[in-house]
Deep mutational scan, measured.
Amino acid sequence: NQASVVANQLIPINTALTLVMMRSEVVTPVGIPADDIPRLVSMQVNRAVPLGTTLMPDMVKGYP
């Protein structure tokens, strides 16, 4: 099973992602692959992302 990117904390709308905000976890449904975490750094979320939420491609501005 492939690990996905999961919010490690509440991420407010328009926040630029940092490594501490994300963790990898095997979840269903599958979200953004954990391998993409380095690419996500400094990209902004377009909505508030609660703790434990799987990051989906449509939540991150400019992804992929």
Rank of each mutant, 00 (worst) to 15 (best):
Q44D: 04
M59H: 07
T28S: 10
V49S: 01
G52K: 04
L40K: 01
M21Y: 07
I37G: 04
I37R: 08
Q44I: 11
I32D: 00
M59C: 05
M22G: 00
P33V: 10
N14R: 07
K61Q: 13
N8Y: 04
P29D: 07
N14M: 14
E25W: 12
P29L: 06
L55N: 00
S4T: 04
A16P: 09
P50M: 12
E25F: 10
I13C: 09
V5N: 00
S4E: 01
S24C: 06
T54K: 03
L55G: 00
V60W: 02
M43Y: 14
G31I: 01
Y63T: 04
V45C: 05
D58Y: 15
I11E: 02
P64E: 14
N14F: 07
K61H: 15
M59P: 01
A3Y: 15
D35A: 09
T53I: 11
S4K: 00
T28C: 15
L55Q: 00
Q2F: 13
L19H: 06
M59L: 05
T53F: 14
N46G: 09
V60E: 01
S4Y: 03
A16H: 13
I11D: 00
L10Q: 12
I32S: 00
P12C: 08
R39E: 05
R47H: 10
A7S: 14
Q2D: 15
M21T: 03
K61G: 06
P12K: 07
E25K: 10
G62D: 11
T18K: 07
N14W: 11
Q2H: 14
K61S: 12
E25C: 06
I11R: 00
A7T: 12
N1P: 15
L10P: 10
K61Y: 10
S42W: 12
P38T: 12
G62A: 11
R47P: 02
P12M: 07
R47W: 06
P57N: 07
V27M: 07
Q2A: 14
L51P: 12
M22T: 01
M43L: 12
R39Y: 11
V6F: 02
Q44N: 09
L51M: 14
Q9E: 10
V26I: 14
A7R: 01
P33Q: 07
N46Q: 12
G62C: 14
P38S: 11
Y63M: 06
M59A: 08
Q9A: 12
L55S: 00
L40Y: 03
M43V: 05
P57C: 10
T18Q: 07
V26H: 10
N46R: 11
M43A: 09
P57F: 12
D35C: 14
L51Q: 14
V26D: 15
P33M: 08
P12V: 05
A7C: 05
P33N: 14
V41E: 05
T54L: 05
M56F: 10
T18P: 00
P38A: 10
V5F: 02
A3C: 15
G52D: 10
Q9V: 07
I32Q: 01
P12A: 08
V5W: 03
R23E: 03
L55D: 02
I37D: 00
T28V: 11
T53R: 13
A34G: 10
T18N: 04
M22F: 15
D36W: 11
A16Q: 08
D36E: 12
R47Q: 10
I32N: 01
V49C: 05
I32Y: 02
V27W: 02
I32G: 01
M21F: 05
V26S: 12
E25R: 08
L55R: 00
S24Y: 09
P12S: 06
P57D: 05
L51A: 11
R23F: 04
S42Y: 13
G62V: 04
G52P: 00
N8M: 09
T28P: 01
Y63E: 04
V5E: 00
V26L: 14
V41F: 08
L19S: 05
V5S: 03
D35R: 05
G31V: 01
M21R: 01
P33K: 08
S4N: 00
P50Y: 14
A16E: 05
E25D: 15
L10M: 09
P12H: 10
V60I: 10
N8G: 10
I37Q: 05
T54W: 03
L19Q: 06
G52V: 02
V30W: 13
P12F: 07
L17H: 00
N8F: 06
Q9L: 10
L55C: 02
D35Q: 09
N8C: 08
L10N: 11
A48R: 12
M56S: 12
G52W: 04
V5A: 13
Q9R: 08
